[in-house]
Design a protein around this nucleic acid. Sequence first.
DNA 1: ATGATTAATGTTATAACGTAACATAAATAA
DNA 2: TTATTTATGTTACGTTATAACATTAATCAT
Lengths: 170, 170
Amino acid sequence: MATRPRKTPSKPQAFPHPHHDHSRCTANALRTAETVCEKHGARLTEIRRRVLEAVWASHAPIGAYDILAELNTDGGKIAPMAVYRALDFLMEHGLVHRLASLNAFIGCALASERHTAHFLICRSCKSATEMDGTAVTRAVKKTLSEHGFVPENEIIEIQGLCAHCHKESA
Amino acid sequence: MATRPRKTPSKPQAFPHPHHDHSRCTANALRTAETVCEKHGARLTEIRRRVLEAVWASHAPIGAYDILAELNTDGGKIAPMAVYRALDFLMEHGLVHRLASLNAFIGCALASERHTAHFLICRSCKSATEMDGTAVTRAVKKTLSEHGFVPENEIIEIQGLCAHCHKESA
DNA sequence: ATGATTAATGTTATAACGTAACATAAATAA
DNA sequence: TTATTTATGTTACGTTATAACATTAATCAT
Ligand SMILES: [Zn+2]
Ligand SMILES: [Zn+2]
Ligand SMILES: [Zn+2]
Ligand SMILES: [Zn+2]
């Protein structure tokens, strides 16, 4: 029996393996950011790039003030406003998402295609990743049609244990 | 043809009509709170009751500091801690939910039966209500099984326009 | 190029949300 | 009553986010 084909090949949403080569993730993200900004006629300035790099330091969502600390490790004097402004910019262009349940930010691996993000958040390794939200969105739409509610934005953040951490805890 | 039966008769989740008799909602909620606390062997003290009343002042989620202001309208000196402690208590007993996307709290109309809450939030009238989350939960489970992710808590908050506000804006 | 205009960043202060730690008081149990 | 637990009071602080205005850098028009 052949392996079952993936349902959504355009979204390779595997939870990041604890020992993967993360430098490639970061490199990819920065390259994508360049492309996206170019396409949007937006400027990826130094501070914006540095914030994006801080966000991509891992797959764990990071708080604005932790980003700030990272930017100021060299003794710099960057203020919170600068970070929040950069984050706003990055979110506008779909390069970063905000996780409401954590007051934290995470890089978007699918920045080229616009989408509403649905997250899985592992309470053990703290990693978060976007899930394929099509089925959920469909279920939401169906449920809402009975209410007459017109959705504009879906905030979906599932907390739990990723496969790697679940295995370990077994 | 007879009217189609409701799928989830135990959860009458209509979005609150702008001109409904809200005093009944409040009265119901307080009565339920009494019952629940009795059943749990917990004490619905005065401050807890007052916080619950503040939460039920409307169907719009309310911030902790707005609750605090409400409690201190008489010139009282209640401190933030007291409010947060009362909210923690009320959440433990399923009488109140927290909306992560708003940093705000809302009374639970279904406090008697334990459940994970999925919310619809109207950006116009600011009301929020729990939706029937069974279909969404099913979709989430199905999607997650492909990831091997083990869910423990679902944060689902759909922002948009309720039927009443949508009609008006038409 | 020069000046006008817009975009981005710097700077200071403060708002908004939430918790730690320890003291006191009230309720319950022994 | 005395001990124990539960709840509240109090002070202080930590964390997250934004308002308002000044300055600098990039872009555009002449
Ligand atoms: Zn990676
Ligand atoms: Zn994990
Ligand atoms: Zn009501
Ligand atoms: Zn509405």
